[in-house]
């Protein structure tokens, strides 16, 4: 007899479960091969659903528009590393390296300032320490984000599954809401990187981000406002976010 959890798999592959159900299901899936096999079936169904829409030719100008936009872009400079393929040569563009040095210096100062203020809880310390650790890698990268009065930096290293998001100016939320940070996967799905809140007193908050995969496999991130316990997939508007990309 199939496990009861399998009843949820259909909704799960469509991203329709509430977070409580999703977390419980994922915990079960981690240990249960039978349900994993059923999940694989449901994933194929979900993939199949993508293929059912009737073809519609886009306006003929789109091809030319895209071609023109591509001409202005140097293609994909980013070298994504996958686990198991070994490390790519540690070649960093000189300009980028200089930027990172300056930036890492600023980051260390900022992190120290944070620690000195002594106002932060353990989570903040953990984030600060991770930021410091990341700053010591010359291959660490930073994505800058700005949205009106909110701005921040997302610091990561492609081979690590942890990162730090420093953000200024995120407004405090009502008690039943929280900020949820999403990591964008190449297959279009979103993974929760962190769930957090801010208080009026905090101008700056550093969030430790945990990713199931090295950040090099993540395409970007976004922050949305969600119910305080989080959502299985983004439901609120995106407050701030960025795609991870090398500047040419």
């Amino acid at each position: 007899m199939a496990h009861k959890e399998q009843e949820l798999l259909g909704a799960y592959v469509m991203g329709a479960l509430g977070s409580g159900e999703r977390i419980a299901l994922e915990a079960h899936l981690g240990d249960c091969q039978e349900c994993q096999a059923a999940l694989a079936d449901y994933e194929q169904v979900a993939e199949g659903l993508l293929h059912l829409a009737t073809s519609v030719a886009p306006a003929s100008g789109l091809r030319a528009t895209l071609n023109a936009r591509l001409a202005g872009r140097p293609g994909n400079l980013r070298s994504l590393r996958r686990p198991g393929l070994g490390r790519a040569p540690q070649v960093v563009f000189a300009a980028l390296a200089v930027t990172l040095l300056v930036l890492n210096g600023a980051l260390i100062l900022e992190t120290r300032r944070l620690a000195e203020r002594g106002q932060e809880l353990l989570a903040q310390q953990e984030a600060s320490q991770t930021a410091l650790a990341l700053a010591s890698y010359s291959t660490s990268q930073t994505a800058f984000v700005q949205e009106e009065k909110i701005w921040g930096t997302f610091v990561y290293e492609e081979n690590f599954p942890v990162a730090v998001f420093n953000v200024w100016g995120l407004p405090p939320l009502p008690d039943d809401k929280a900020y949820q940070l999403w990591l964008f996967n190449p297959d279009g799905t979103r993974t929760t990187g962190a769930l957090f809140r801010t208080t009026a007193a905090q101008e700056l908050i550093s969030i430790l981000i945990r990713s199931p995969v090295p950040l090099g496999e993540v395409l970007g991130f976004g922050v949305t406002v969600e119910p305080e316990t989080g959502s299985p997939a983004p439901t609120g508007p995106r407050i701030i976010g960025a795609e991870f990309e090398h500047s040419p």
Partner: peptide, 30 residues
């Protein structure tokens, strides 16, 4: 921009592209 992240072992190009399209369309909704 993401062609490098495509992994042929995990499925077809079209499915990958349609999954991206679905995600973008859902973002657009929000």
């Amino acid at each position: 921009t993401r062609a490098r992240t495509f992994n042929a072992d995990r499925g077809q190009v079209l499915s990958w592209l349609l999954a991206i399209t679905r995600r973008l369309a859902l973002d657009r909704f929000r």
